[in-house]
Amino acid sequence: MTYDIIFSGFGGQGALFAGQLLAYAAMDAGRFVTWIPSYGPEMRGGTAHCTVIISEEEIGSPLVRNPSTVIALNNPSAEKYEPLLATNGYLFYNSSLVSHPFTRRNIHALAIPGSTAAAELGHAKLLNMVLLGAMLAYVPVLPLEAVEQALDNHIPARRRELLEANKLALRKGIELAQRAVQIPA
């Protein structure tokens, strides 16, 4: 099984780190994995995204045209990836910020009030973990424990104080996903 996932948001929302964390978890689980960022001029003030591919087999192209999963942290990301998402794909969007009206009927778009949840957890920066958790509830790429373990193993020392908060945010995401409104319902 191969999973291709795009994390997209404004620079600073943590899209790149959420993707890296998943990549670390995949590596620790012995999978093949690629993580590739957008590194163009759009990183300054615009959207930043990364593509993560996780597979049991050697990975060829590290880029995909039609991802099977998208995490959209802001409105431009939702607009950009709704048409590109593969048929029956999953799109988890930060409904606290995204106002984009989804029109496709052959995808699963899940509204996750990520910014609101992150604020309630005490730190706006936890948004990426809330959305990553939400994804884990639907996309069986890796178990939650593997991602939590990756946080323990790879989070830089200067960010250690947020370790437990990150784990709470992941779990909050799963909880929100389980009662999320799906479009189409």
Binding site: V33, T34, Y39, P62
Partner: peptide
């Protein structure tokens, strides 16, 4: 190419 420079892999 720049892709391989920016790519992360185990």
């Amino acid at each position: 190419d720049g892709n391989i420079g920016q790519l992360m892999e185990p």
